[in-house]
Write a protein that binds this DNA or RNA. Structure first.
Lengths: 216, 216
DNA sequence: TTACTTACTTAATGTTTATTAAGCAAGGGG
DNA sequence: CCCCTTGCTTAATAAACATTAAGTAAGTAA
């Protein structure tokens, strides 16, 4: 018995690091944040419940007590809003994106989670496909609006007019901005010194805005 | 003896679909291309040897007979050059990238494989990390050169001068172009009607080239 | 005290998985 | 006819995994 149960009630020392139980916050949320970290670092398929449980100092079944299944846990993680940065509306959103990229280079967090999981979700049978499809749809609209907001008024009509492919220039620019942020994150994760996420993001935004301010 | 061998020589009907054995090409290459397709569709972690074997109408051990391990198979897949499109040098490479994006929207292939696997490789412990790190390093240099080639001669000096972050504008643009292609692929896989990969790629390239043709 | 809730644990189950070992079959060359 | 290579097979193994069931322990409320 003693060999399998090293510490019957102490909540900390089982795994390698437990994020300070403090005042008993919602245990659920604690697990959620830990799971988010692990999913961000390892992806969904490559993460086992045992991995997450180990970081919390509990067993896999302990995790499933709070969330019925691994998929449910993923869903809850995606639903978890990171309230530390409320996305602003209008043209300031574009600056917010650069700031986000900046912050992410020092403290990888939510965006890394999304970059890793969104690419993974593009594969067959992934449980987060619909979630990411919807997310991108919303983001493209919001960022598209933000791009329009930054254009001089006389250029907005052209940027809102669908081209031969059925998409507006503003929408295309929005897709590009999102894509560049996701793609940069991958390059940065593989080689942090090789790219400066914030400056490249800013460059692309500026270049696109300038481009939409001309006749095509 | 006859009880152990249900079908002594027929090679086809075991799985659900075998891609026409034809004239016996290198079996190795046949397996390689099948594996590439499955990896592109499902990712590496989410693909089992049984998946690949089933598409070939053989057993998992049959696959491992040609490649010692699943990781070796992945390595071989990445090393496999798709000779159908030789990447041109110089400024024409940028047009080539748009063409590639165009072709990929109709027949997902190599690029999808790379988009899916590169994001996956950014997670911990992935066997393809070094491969993708090197690939991105080479690509950034090549595309950076191509960007310079397209600039008017009087702008090349500025675009080759490192900024405060230690990277050249041309290098930043190259990272952006790669990132946008990878990121767009993900959006497109999730929602093919929502983005036009080729036109957005072209838009970003044009916008970046125009931007580097100004004083910053 | 009783009862209920929260937060787990142990144990078991059944599946999936990569990998190894050994053998079989066919075809070609000698 | 024998041998070697190519291309598999069956069988076995050992591990990892998600999930379920049932039980335990502590705290809280009545």
């Amino acid at each position: 018995m003693s060999e399998t149960t090293p510490a019957p009630d102490t909540r900390a020392p089982a795994g390698s690091e437990a994020p300070t139980p403090r005042k008993r916050v919602n245990r659920r949320e604690q697990i959620l944040r830990t799971a988010a970290d692990v999913f961000a670092a390892q992806g969904f398929n490559n993460t086992s419940l045992a991995d997450i449980a180990a970081m919390l100092g509990i067993t896999p079944a302990g995790v499933l007590h709070h969330f019925g299944s691994k998929t449910d846990l993923l869903t809850a993680v995606l639903e978890l809003r990171d309230d530390t940065d409320p996305a602003p509306e209008g043209s300031r959103m574009l600056d917010h994106l650069v700031t986000t990229a900046e912050r992410n280079a020092t403290r990888p967090g939510t965006t890394q989670l999304y970059a890793v999981l969104s690419a993974e979700s593009a594969t067959d049978q992934h449980p987060a496909q619909e979630w990411f499809r919807d997310r991108y749809t919303v983001l493209r609209r919001e960022i598209g609006d933000a791009v329009l907001d930054r254009l001089a008024p006389e250029h907005r009509a052209a940027a809102s007019t669908p081209g031969p492919d059925g998409h507006t220039p503003a929408g295309a620019a929005a897709a590009a901005v999102i894509a560049v942020m996701d793609g940069l994150q991958v390059q940065w994760l593989l080689d942090p010194d090789a790219v400066d996420m914030a400056s490249v993001t800013g460059l692309v935004i500026d270049a696109l805005v300038a481009r939409l301010s001309q006749e095509g």
